[in-house]
Design a protein around this nucleic acid. Structure first.
Lengths: 294, 294
DNA sequence: TGTTTATCATAAGAAATAACTATCAATCCG
DNA sequence: CGGATTGATAGTTATTTCTTATGATAAACA
């Protein structure tokens, strides 16, 4: 199946406008025979005459009139595709799907969302909050554009950039405020409350205590830092939370916060995306904005 | 300025649908590298990535999604142009601008319009009624598609086909009904009422009497056959009218109609159109329909 | 862990398409 | 009738697009 081409439509449109092969050809920056051939080809393909050629002038046929209108529509649509491409290339627009782990989302997102919206008004931000393995899976599947997680991710297909480094602090009930600071080993002897399995923060905390991360423990596992703090406040044990969570989580709980001595437990939070992502350039820009927020 | 092509849009659409270069290429009946190259070319021209290629699968970029939608619109519009061409080629549709001389129009058109509309329901018929020279001019200018006039027209650029032959009859007042039939020469002595200048029928009548057609005559010239007959009915003279006009024009006038003896005055009515007209085929068909009516 | 498989990109030559120059044919005009 | 204008045609060249063969990379497999 042979078909018409946009080039033919362009030539046709010019001829319909000029009603003169020579001038239309000049307008298209080609020779008159080239125009003649393409018009003829187009008429052959369509199986209908577009122009009526009489001795000294040419006229659009009735079909030609209709076709000229359609041709203009098509050419305009094609041009718009170019405009659209330019727009999408010049600035970050459209939808950005961001995944964030639950031990970061509530503390970082409010400011990040505000700043990003201010900087990229045309950007529609979707947030997905879940544990790292799921985020990585969804990222790889193309359901997310980027994710904010604890580094390293060590996934060959993903690019990662660090955002900030944060320490973990000890949360004890208010009445233990002046008790001696436990070290990593003594923590193991205490009733350490942790997040349920799957959260990387659980593993990071356990690793600080040199405890195996795998098997479930006898203690109740919480589903959020907020719950953990409330449990501590109720005297059920102690826990660790990232520094960033302190202002939010201790507002409505009577607990004491203590920093560890060096080497303090800590984690690096970073942003990851597919190495192949077409948004790679914009994502490094966004990482900068997030860094400002932290 | 290099630009995208419809071919690229077709390939792109296929790839967007299959999300697989090999299968999309197969669907387009080309080799996989050919598809790769055209997609690459298209991305280069647009200056934006359409697909994100990762190891084992490809995905549309956000821009690609939008572009795919547009591409489908454009391709559909291009296909419709083909459909439109086919429709316009297969049957007579749209507008047909017909010119008819005033000494034919009122008698022939009612039936012709009815029959044509029945046969070509999608045909919109415009009628222009004026004298032959104006019709020929407008036909040549492309303001008319065809004209029904008295033959011959003898215009090199026009094609003509005869429709019917009609005699002229003598119209006298009712009380002259039994008077002897004048011949061409005796007509010259009578008060012969005629149409105003410009009407071919005037010239044809004069030519029958062997009188010069040019100079204005002393008698009142009428603007329609109807007026002529009414004048005859009022006793102002005699006239000739084409046979076809008899039923209509003598309905409300007390006149007598007489046929001449051979050689009877007559004219050939025919249809003309530009030799270059794209409607030429359809016009011969229409001439057949008109012939049926006469 | 190395091997196979799947998949898209690249390269080089061949085929197809579109362009140009030169020329023709028709017609209008003085 | 002769020159000028205009679109069509022919032959050749230039460009584009395709094909085949091959490469590179990562996933799947054993």
């Amino acid at each position: 199946m042979i078909n018409i081409t946009l080039k033919q439509l362009r030539y046709f449109e010019a001829l319909a406008r000029h009603r003169h092969f020579g001038r239309a050809a000049e307008a298209c920056a080609i020779s008159q025979p080239a125009l003649s051939m393409q018009i003829k080809e187009m008429e052959d393909v369509l199986g209908a005459a577009l122009f009526e050629r009489s001795a000294r002038q040419i006229r659009l046929t009735q079909f030609g009139e209709v076709a000229a209108e359609r041709a203009r529509d098509i050419l305009r649509a094609a041009d718009e595709l170019g405009d659209l491409a330019r727009a999408s290339r010049e600035r970050l627009v459209g939808r950005l799907r961001v995944g964030v782990i639950p031990t970061i989302a509530p503390y970082l997102l409010p400011k990040v969302m505000t700043d990003l919206s201010a900087r990229y008004p045309e950007l529609e931000i979707h947030v997905r909050e879940t544990v790292t393995p799921k985020l990585i899976q969804e990222l790889s599947d193309g359901q997310l554009d980027t994710a904010i997680v604890a580094l390293p991710v060590s996934e060959g297909t993903l690019a990662e950039t660090p955002l900030f480094h944060e320490n973990f602090v000890l949360v004890r009930s208010a009445k233990e405020a002046n008790a001696p600071l436990p070290n990593a080993d003594s923590l193991r002897e205490m009733r350490l409350l942790l997040l349920e399995e799957g959260h990387c923060f659980r593993d990071q905390a356990l690793s600080f205590c040199n405890m195996p991360s795998g098997p479930p423990r006898e203690v109740l596992d919480a589903s959020s830092l907020s719950t953990l703090v409330q449990m501590v406040s109720a005297g059920m044990g102690v826990t660790l939370i990232p520094e960033m969570a302190v202002p939010v989580e201790t507002r409505s709980a009577s607990v004491s916060i203590s920093r560890f001595e060096a080497p303090e437990p800590a984690r690096t939070v970073g942003m990851v995306w597919r190495k192949t992502s077409p948004l790679a350039n914009q994502l490094t820009e966004i990482a900068d904005v997030v860094r400002q927020c932290a």
